[in-house]
């Protein structure tokens, strides 16, 4: 009996694995993957579409510039070029961080390119396009402008942001 049982178990596992491989192949074909950049901000998870993120940069001195709105703390140099920086905490009306550490996502949205100051990148992952949910209906209109949708990651909910909306919100009066 045990021998019979053992052989049955290996067969079962093998068949399951094969099924899994087939399903993956099918997924690859039918459901295209999307790269997203997961990052944390005030203990919550957010994401930018990977296509909108050019580069992840460490914070190395932001130079202020007079006259700009409060959510734009200043300018940085990126390999000889000058880029603006948006403080995403300020844009989302979150309190200032406990420690000044952070990272900058160099993102594009529409015609605009700018650095976005976040707490830190958690991961760069490929997710199924179908796993991205539409934004919740109960959001107000201002928030709806820069929230592209939501997804689940390891049991945590992730808010997918639209960079163009974030930029527009940053310079809005």
């Amino acid at each position: 009996m045990p021998h019979q049982h053992d052989s049955m178990k290996s067969d079962r596992i093998l068949s399951e694995l094969k099924l899994l491989r087939e399903s993956r192949t099918i997924t690859d074909v039918d459901e295209p993957m999307v790269t997203v950049v997961l990052f944390s901000l005030d203990g919550e998870l957010y994401a930018f579409p990977g296509a909108n993120v050019l580069e992840i940069l460490p914070v190395e001195g932001i130079s202020p510039i007079p006259g700009t709105p409060e959510c734009i703390p200043g300018l940085i140099t990126v390999r000889g070029d000058i880029e603006s920086v948006i403080d995403l905490r300020r844009v989302l009306d979150l309190p200032p961080p406990a420690d000044a550490q952070g990272q900058i996502l160099l993102a594009t949205g529409g015609e605009v390119r700018s650095g976005v100051l976040i707490d830190g990148v958690e991961d760069v992952v490929d997710v199924l396009r179908t796993s991205i949910l539409p934004p919740p209906r109960n959001l107000d209109r201002q928030t709806r402008e820069f929230v592209a949708g939501g997804l689940e990651r390891d049991g945590r909910s992730v808010t997918l942001l639209d960079p163009a909306g974030v930029f527009a919100r940053a310079v809005a009066p």
Binding site: L75, S84, R113, V171
Partner: peptide
Amino acid sequence: LPSLVEPF
């Protein structure tokens, strides 16, 4: 200047 800050 970056396009975001130029107008200001």
